[in-house]
Design a binder for these strands. Structure first.
Lengths: 204, 204
DNA sequence: CCAGCTGATGTCACTTGGTGTCATCACCGA
DNA sequence: TCGGTGATGACACCAAGTGACATCAGCTGG
């Protein structure tokens, strides 16, 4: 531990900066190396030059270290849906929301996202947490639809479909062989969603 | 513990029967009394006349004690959707599935279900597990739709809407003031779902 | 009728996630 | 210079799970 051991630069605060980011990085690395179950919180903290106790000051959970930065997504989704031009259909509002969040996915380093997803897919606990996060995003979209005055009887269906569109798009975008941009995939997914909803109440 | 202490009937196996059911009952009681977080696995086991170790032989998890008996639901959903009369629309297949699972909800003691739901709603961990179970049911419906030959591009949307219909119906049915039958609520929910999907791609 | 097998349980020790509490100490502002 | 603040470390502790081994009623084959 002894964090002071590396304080050799001139302007230097008491501790190495970005403790949170260092923990996230160390965690992902270890999860990829040995798997989620086989790595200990103490090990993550050690690799980040910190302590188990400090880990839990930055993340409520061992799992949570993989799920940072939802607040931005939530804000973008609510605003994206609530603020879509007034005369559009709910499905088009979803399209606007997907455009709004696209920025997040182009900034992120794509390979890190893929590593992260591989780790998550390999572990039920983590898939569970991912579902919870998904539910939060769905709730955000519901909020957006309410703000734009959509009747309550439609809000949940719309939000659920929005969540489905977002998830499908993300999955396609994060697939190892994908090279297309998020917005392209979003448009495609949304088009499929439109035809699908139209087809669901006619004979197969 | 001394399980033999109550062996007074004539034909009696070595231990009290229904260990699993006793654990479920003890757990729910304690969760209602003191809350989920404030009750220990050891306490649950003790009230059931068993040991912590035995608890974990019956349930993988502390949470899992509240989520038994999904297999039946899964089977009913797959068969209900796959076996719906061939010329019906996907949304009507969902209706058939809801009819199929209704039996489960009429057998269950309603007050127990409500207690259970109160406990779940009060705890994030438990809501997380509930979402996982919901995802399993959604996957089951997807499987049903595949079996009935629905094009893959529609399967996920259909399954997601099915899950939404099931969940909405269940929520309405379990609400404290509800007195109506599951099948009635199911029909109503499904009708709403139909109008909703139709409305989602037209201007609000 | 006895011996050995089986299966559900108990016992115990151990790892790990997670928390409460107090100490430490560079930085910063008065 | 001095006291406050904030991020961290140290330490003890609880509860969730797990592995390994012991126990022992009932069944089954001889």
């Amino acid at each position: 531990m002894t964090p002071g051991a590396i304080t050799y630069t001139r302007v230097m605060s008491r501790w190495e900066p970005n403790a949170r980011a260092r923990l996230e990085r160390a965690a992902l690395d270890l999860f990829v190396e040995r798997g989620y179950d086989a790595t200990t919180v103490a090990e993550i903290a050690e690799r980040a030059g910190l302590t188990k106790r400090t880990f839990f000051r930055h993340f409520t959970d061992k799992r949570e270290v993989l799920f940072g930065g939802q607040e931005i997504m939530i804000r973008l989704l609510v605003e994206g849906i609530a603020g879509a031009r007034g005369s559009t259909t709910p499905l088009d509002a979803i399209g606007a929301a997907l455009e709004a969040v696209a920025s997040v996915f182009d900034l992120d380093r794509l390979d890190v996202v893929r590593q992260r997803q591989t780790v998550i897919d390999a572990n039920v606990e983590l898939r569970e947490r991912e579902l919870l996060k998904g539910a939060t995003l769905s709730a955000a979209m519901a909020e957006g639809f309410r703000q734009r005055g959509l009747p309550e009887s439609l809000v949940n269906v719309a939000a659920q479909l929005g969540q489905l569109a977002l998830h499908s798009t993300f999955v396609r975008w994060a697939r190892p062989d994908n090279e297309r941009k998020f917005t392209d995939l979003a448009q495609e997914t949304l088009a499929e969603l439109k035809t699908a909803t139209a087809a669901l109440d006619s004979t197969e």
